[in-house]
Design a protein around this nucleic acid. Structure first.
Ligand code: MN
Ligand code: MN
Ligand code: ZN
Ligand code: ZN
Lengths: 154, 154
DNA sequence: ATCCGAATTGAAAAGGATTTTCAGTTAGAT
DNA sequence: ATCTAACTGAAAATCCTTTTCAATTCGGAT
């Protein structure tokens, strides 16, 4: 079992990489660590401003770039125009189950695409090096909520 | 074997849907039908202008929207900021093998993710409804090119 | 072949996301 | 406490995409 990603662990890693731990960065980190949803830079900024209204959107962008470079956050792939980020919880290769209702993301690590990759290589001559895989749907919490509403109506 | 997607077939379908077949739209269609690469609106515009320099970028965007609505083109999911489109060759649900060297896209239809979806539903309670799956790598042509260069050096 | 009206067009402006610039501020080593 | 490179916010610049609007064009009706 790998250790969970805590604020302390992240700040230690950033400090180790030579980054300063500013008031602004702490606020951005706090927002990201305490959320299970994927969030756009703008949404993160909105939440950060509740902690510290003086933090600018540009600083959010800059912090997200650092965190991406350090492998501490993931981007989720959606059809939206703006990017969307999330704390990287599993350390290695993994994928996301994204709730279309609430934005919650559940991670999974075992995608088992080797067989498919091998078949495609044989059929098309294509040598695969990487892949994107994201599932969209409804998380268990939102299913419960929907079920409860259904009951109330009865 | 489903019939191949020809320019005639597409224009017939658009006309049937009540769209006018303008000079500009014909140019955009020609560019898309004759390419196996995914292309950004800007790249498409560039190619369209070689056929007809008077066509504006805005018209390319508008035509892409119509073609998307009619299910005649696909978007590919990459890390780039701008969108990228491609003629939709398989009719139904399918995915892409995208060459990182030349941009060529090879389609495949049989993703076989049902088992994985079932396992994830059992493990996480998540009910999946849709997914994105794209492979990145090197197409057979670019592998040959690379191999030839390697030989020449010897 | 000509006419007509709605659909379509290009140019320009607006919009939205992200990046760059720059002068002032600050974290953290000494 | 001092110092300096790293960091910051505001504003401007860049991209990509959409909207607006007056002029043009397609294609059905004459
Ligand atoms: Mn992730
Ligand atoms: Mn496709
Ligand atoms: Zn949910
Ligand atoms: Zn290639």
């Amino acid at each position: 079992m790998s250790p969970s990603i805590t604020l302390e662990r992240i700040t230690a890693l950033l400090r180790q990489k030579g980054y300063k731990l500013t008031r602004q960065r702490r606020a951005v980190l706090q927002v990201i660590v305490t959320s299970h949803d994927h969030m756009t830079p703008s949404k993160i900024h909105e939440k950060v401003q509740k902690i510290d209204p003086s933090v600018g959107l540009v600083t959010v962008y800059r912090t997200l770039e650092i965190l991406t470079g350090a492998g501490l956050i993931c981007r989720v792939h959606t059809d939206r125009t703006s990017r969307s980020y999330l704390l990287r919880r599993p350390h290695g290769h993994h994928h996301h189950l994204i709730c279309s209702d609430c934005g919650r993301v559940v991670d999974f690590t075992d995608c088992n695409l080797h067989r498919l990759e091998k078949r495609l290589a044989a059929e098309t001559g294509f040598r695969t090096e990487d892949h994107i895989l994201e599932f969209f749907g409804c998380c268990s919490l939102c299913q419960e909520t929907a079920a409860t509403k259904e009951e109330d109506r009865a």
